[in-house]
C-alpha cells in the first residue's frame, strides 16, 4: 500500500513540477516581452516567475525523494544524481537527472545574482532552454502512464503554451529591433582593433 502511495506521489509531484516549470518558462518569456494589462503590472510577471520557480522545485524535490524511496523503481540516490546510473529506464531517468542539474544551476545563480553579477547570471540562465525540454522528454519516457491520453494532453498543453509564448518573444524581439532608431542598427561607434595600432 505504501508503495502505491510513493508511486502516486512521485508521478503526481512530477506532473505538478512539470506544469509549474512550464509556467515559469512562460512567465520568464512574458517578462522579456514586457507584457502587461491594467491590473497586471510588469513587476507581477517577474515576481511570479521567481516565486513559482521556487514552488516548482519543492514539488521537484518531492518527486525525486519519493522516486528514490519507491521500491518499484529501485532507484538509489546515485541514480538520481548520476545520469544513466539507473537500472530502471536509464535513458529516461537520465533526462530527468540532467534537467535537475541544470535547474539547480538556474536556481543557485538566481539566488546569488547580486553577488555573481548580471553577465554571469544571464549566461547561465540560457540553460533554461535545456532544462525545460529535457523535463518534458523525461515526462514522456520515464513514467508508466507517460502515453496515457490525459498525460499527453497535459504535456501537449505545456508544450503549446511554452512554444506559443516563445514564438511571441521572438517576434517581439524583432519588432523592437526594427523600431530602434537607425543609430543603433548602424552603430559604427564600436571601433575595430584593425583601425590602427602603430609602433
Amino acid at each position: 500500500m505504501s508503495e502505491q502511495v510513493l508511486w502516486f506521489a512521485s508521478r503526481g509531484s512530477g506532473i505538478v513540477s512539470l506544469v509549474l516549470s512550464s509556467a515559469v518558462v512562460c512567465l520568464g518569456l512574458l517578462t522579456v516581452v514586457r507584457w502587461q494589462r491594467p491590473g497586471w503590472p510588469r513587476f507581477l510577471t517577474v515576481e511570479l516567475h521567481r516565486r513559482v520557480a521556487l514552488l516548482s522545485i519543492v514539488f521537484l524535490a518531492i518527486h525525486i525523494v519519493t522516486a528514490i524511496l519507491d521500491p518499484y523503481t529501485a532507484l538509489g540516490v546515485l541514480a538520481a544524481v548520476v545520469p544513466l546510473a539507473s537500472s530502471y529506464r536509464p535513458v529516461a531517468v537520465a533526462l530527468g537527472v540532467i534537467s535537475v542539474d541544470l535547474t539547480i544551476a538556474l536556481i543557485a545563480t538566481s539566488l546569488l545574482r547580486e553577488r555573481i553579477g548580471q553577465r554571469t547570471w544571464r549566461a547561465v540562465h540560457w540553460l533554461a532552454y535545456g532544462a525545460w525540454p529535457l523535463a518534458v522528454l523525461h515526462g514522456l519516457t520515464a513514467g508508466t502512464d507517460a502515453v496515457a491520453p490525459w498525460m499527453l494532453a497535459i504535456e501537449g498543453l505545456c508544450v503549446l503554451a511554452v512554444g506559443g509564448v516563445l514564438a511571441w518573444r521572438i517576434s517581439a524581439g524583432r519588432q523592437r529591433r526594427a523600431a530602434l532608431p537607425a543609430v543603433v542598427a548602424a552603430s559604427s561607434i564600436v571601433g575595430s582593433p584593425a583601425s590602427g595600432r602603430t609602433r
Binding site: 517578462t31 503590472p41 510588469r42 513587476f43 517577474v46 548580471q118
Partner: peptide
C-alpha cells in the same frame, strides 16, 4: 544596463 522594463517605476 537599464533596458526600460519599468518595474522600478511600478514599485
Amino acid at each position: 544596463r537599464c533596458d526600460g522594463h519599468g518595474m522600478c517605476a511600478e514599485l
